[in-house]
Simulated scan of single mutants.
Amino acid sequence: MLYLTVKEAAEKWGLGTRIVTLYCTENKIEGVIKRGNLWLIPEHAQRPADKRRREQPAPQPSLSEDLAHLLAATAGTMPHDNPDTVLDTVNEERMRLQYEGEIAYLRGDFSTTMACFQRTRGDNAARLRACPVTIAATISLGDYPAYTEIEAYLEKCAEVHKGSGAAAIAEQALATAAVSIIAPNMVPGWLKEGDFSALAPQARPNALYLRAKYFYCLHKYDAMLSVAQTALTLSAQPQGFTTTDIYLRMTCAVACHCLGRDDEARHWLLKAMKLALPHSFITPFAEAVTALGGLMEQCLEREYPAFRDAVLTQWKRTWKNWISFHNQFTKDNITLMLTLREYHLALLVAQRVPYAKIAEQHCISVGRLKNIMLEVYEKLYISGREELAKYII
């Protein structure tokens, strides 16, 4: 057998001679022998474990990595026959909370959606993942204070993680409020341009839905329909459906109605109803009653009369909440909801400066000024100068 000296073993193991000598003295090296003052160490002896050396903890994934993992894990479809069984397919609480919050929202149980969000406290990835549906719940409840807390959290995330996937998801969640409150100027630039490169693939169907809603805010209904149809084609999964799948069909229905193509609108609306109403998912329809005029009531009465009262009752309740939320949101964000030119003109109108004088100052006709103000009133969901003064002065 070949032996190494203490010095040779120390060099081999990358240790000091003193520590190797100590190992020999304490008989921690198998097969070591002593000849006089000389320690002889078997050539194939293993370096003893150093209890003083602590293993380094495994590196923790970044927020963007953790969020991408969670998005992938919660992007699965709900079975057509029984969507609730999806809750039995997840083995982590954070994943279950996401599905539970979405299903509760679809059934109009917004308080449960909010409760699921509260249970994500301390888990930033789960919290970011749950923000879009929770923001929708705050709007349906008219709970503006709860929204402002979420808004502050998302703005901080977007700033701290700027340029990352996590920041893009935070901005996407904020866009949920912007398109819901008809504030297209507040939509992030990448969503306006359709550049989803910073998003995980699983987040892109919802981003396409928000982009379609952005076009709705701009009254670009052809573009709205095109984006929604494209998103449906890309996300089609015959084994089940997602919340976004329902909303994309509703988006197609609204776009067709706005384009005067009510037969197509009815087709898309019935497809959404067939997917959702058998499971008491009434929220997407309650949200669209106003946008579809009488078409919603017609389809419910003819095809799903058992759900007519539930949908319309929820619409009456949440529409008032939407108005309340919209008014508070507008007061806080009016300079973002209007262009700079619109804001300057609106301020003068609210101050009761005569239209002729405002038109002369801004080198436009009185007719053009009136058209601009009609667009302002439409954006703010108000009817005239008196209401405008409440927001802008």
Rank of each mutant, 00 (worst) to 15 (best):
M95T: 10
Y343M: 14
A115W: 08
T330W: 02
T112D: 10
V6Y: 00
R35G: 00
T77Y: 05
I182K: 10
A146G: 08
R266P: 10
Q56D: 06
K316A: 14
A173V: 08
Q237A: 15
V254C: 09
P201D: 09
A130V: 01
A265D: 13
F215D: 10
D66C: 05
M78F: 07
A177K: 11
A125R: 00
G367Y: 01
G16A: 15
A158H: 02
P57N: 04
A288Y: 06
A288L: 08
E386T: 10
A167M: 05
N333R: 15
T89L: 15
P305Y: 08
E375C: 10
L4G: 00
T5R: 06
T21K: 11
C217R: 02
K34G: 01
G293I: 04
R52C: 02
F281H: 14
M95G: 10
C217W: 04
W268H: 14
V32N: 05
S140R: 13
V376R: 00
H257E: 13
E26D: 11
D143K: 07
Y23R: 11
H267K: 12
G367C: 03
R94W: 05
N321Q: 14
A350F: 02
N37W: 06
E342I: 06
D109F: 00
N124V: 07
D50P: 05
M95L: 08
L63S: 07
T251S: 15
